[in-house]
Design a protein around this nucleic acid. Structure first.
Lengths: 91, 91
DNA sequence: TTAACATTTAACCTAAATGTTAATTGTATT
DNA sequence: AATACAATTAACATTTAGGTTAAATGTTAA
């Protein structure tokens, strides 16, 4: 079920862009929101999807909630793809 | 965008299972259908989603349509993930 | 305590995805 | 040509996803 959650989370362009942003460094929900043309509420839901997929982690810092990337779960996708491509490497 | 199509196609358990089946070898739409509890029409649509994402290819053989895996497009996902994990370069 | 700010949650709407059955298309067989 | 078979497409119902605004929650500071 983890793979399912992860892939569903990645199948949205805004969520992928959020991950790309967080790759550069942690930031608050509000900062993240500034990068997009949708409401804070919408971003908040995207963040919760990413969090459920364990792709990001959050910590509260005063009145801000800071999000950081957790790329480790992507390992599972890499593995699944690698198996699908055949156990031998051909590139 | 290709990555978007690919990830959306992968974000469905039936479609992932179809890819796993095709990894073992090509088969017809009917054969694929036998592995699932949904109708042939439903599988046919799943196949078209996979085909649009270029994850599979089809060739007609008489009254059968044979599907085969095309795992090469998964390379793009691998690359995107690798970059996200920081093992690659930024965009 | 109250006000202001950051963020999330709730309620609602619309669009997209997935499933079904029925009709259609394409091919083979008689 | 007529029938049967394989598969797709069309029409429709239901579910899920993503967006909005408004209300609720949590925190800081006057």
């Amino acid at each position: 079920m983890a793979l399912q959650n992860t892939l569903k989370a990645l199948a949205d362009p805004i969520r992928r862009e959020i991950l790309n942003l967080l790759k550069e460094g942690s930031m608050s929900a509000g900062e993240i929101t500034n990068y997009f043309d949708v409401t804070a509420a919408s971003i908040s839901r995207h963040l919760s999807v990413l969090k459920d997929a364990d792709l990001i982690r959050d910590t509260r810092d005063g009145k801000y909630i800071i999000y950081e990337l957790n790329a480790s779960v992507l390992e599972e996708i890499m593995l699944w793809i690698t198996e699908l491509k055949g156990d031998g490497r051909n590139d």
